[in-house]
Amino acid sequence: MTEHAHQHGEKAHVVGYGQYILIWAGLMGLTGTTVALAGIELGRWVIITALTIASVKGFLVLNIFMHLRSEDRTFRLFVLVAGVVLLIFICLTFFDYAFR
């Protein structure tokens, strides 16, 4: 635990290089999957698949690289609100695209 974390009574969020590299490789793999799936005819599933992969990537970046998992509950709640709003925006947009 760092001195800074001790001073503020925060939880330690030390992440080893190995884990960073592993997550990075995972993100690259997911990017490759997105690109590969773009060339396959999946019909209406293509957007759902792409958004799901993007969401998983966003989740990993927020939690690992931006240390959200070791943050205060208030901050996690704020990010959750932002995520839910984004989800609502996307769903509402598809009231147009899905019913044309």
Partner: peptide
């Protein structure tokens, strides 16, 4: 924040989209 597409009723949106917005 959820009503934006009422600016777009004449651009060819789906009927469902227009009803919802």
């Amino acid at each position: 924040s959820l009503v934006w597409a009422h600016h777009m009723f004449t651009v060819g949106m789906s009927d469902t989209g227009m009803f919802v917005f």
